[in-house]
Amino acid sequence: MDDLTWILIAIVSLAVAGYLALIASAIVSVIRSAELALVSRAAWLAAIIAFPVLGTIAWYGIGYRTHEVERALGIRPV
């Protein structure tokens, strides 16, 4: 294999490692989020596992505000 092939393999490997790290950090963040109700936590974990890219983007985009919605709906007391 030539040098270009090894460079491409290294770039792809780093991208995959970053992708997996981002998904793992989203899962850990959901699990450690104490302010989420159990049903919300389970739904977020299912979304991240079923749709890794979209679920992770959604968690980092709006997931951290789920507890505010729960309080507004009366799912979790203040």
Score class of each variant (00 low, 15 high):
1 M>C: 06
3 D>F: 14
3 D>R: 10
3 D>A: 15
3 D>H: 11
4 L>D: 05
4 L>K: 05
5 T>E: 12
5 T>Q: 13
6 W>F: 11
6 W>K: 09
7 I>H: 14
9 I>G: 01
9 I>A: 13
9 I>E: 13
10 A>S: 09
12 V>M: 11
12 V>G: 06
13 S>P: 00
13 S>G: 14
14 L>S: 08
15 A>L: 11
15 A>Y: 04
15 A>T: 01
15 A>D: 02
16 V>R: 13
16 V>N: 07
17 A>N: 05
17 A>F: 07
18 G>L: 15
18 G>A: 11
18 G>M: 14
18 G>Q: 06
19 Y>F: 15
19 Y>S: 06
19 Y>K: 05
20 L>Q: 13
21 A>V: 12
22 L>E: 04
23 I>N: 08
23 I>D: 02
24 A>Y: 03
24 A>W: 07
26 A>H: 05
28 V>L: 15
29 S>A: 12
30 V>N: 00
32 R>V: 00
33 S>T: 09
35 E>T: 05
35 E>A: 08
36 L>N: 00
37 A>S: 15
38 L>R: 14
39 V>G: 06
40 S>P: 11
41 R>C: 08
41 R>W: 00
42 A>D: 12
43 A>V: 09
43 A>C: 13
45 L>E: 10
45 L>H: 14
45 L>N: 10
47 A>D: 11
47 A>L: 15
47 A>S: 15
48 I>M: 02
48 I>G: 03
49 I>H: 02
49 I>M: 10
49 I>Y: 04
50 A>T: 07
51 F>W: 13
52 P>A: 11
52 P>I: 04
52 P>F: 02
53 V>E: 06
53 V>M: 09
53 V>S: 07
54 L>Y: 11
56 T>M: 01
57 I>R: 05
57 I>Q: 06
57 I>S: 03
57 I>W: 13
58 A>G: 07
59 W>N: 00
59 W>G: 00
60 Y>L: 04
60 Y>M: 04
60 Y>E: 06
61 G>Q: 02
63 G>V: 05
63 G>P: 07
63 G>K: 00
64 Y>N: 12
64 Y>T: 05
64 Y>H: 12
64 Y>G: 08
65 R>A: 10
65 R>F: 13
66 T>R: 15
67 H>K: 10
67 H>Q: 06
68 E>T: 04
68 E>N: 09
69 V>M: 10
70 E>Y: 07
70 E>R: 07
71 R>N: 08
73 L>A: 13
73 L>G: 03
74 G>V: 12
74 G>K: 04
75 I>S: 03
75 I>V: 14
76 R>T: 13
76 R>A: 14
76 R>N: 03
76 R>Q: 07
76 R>K: 13
77 P>H: 11
78 V>Y: 01
78 V>P: 04
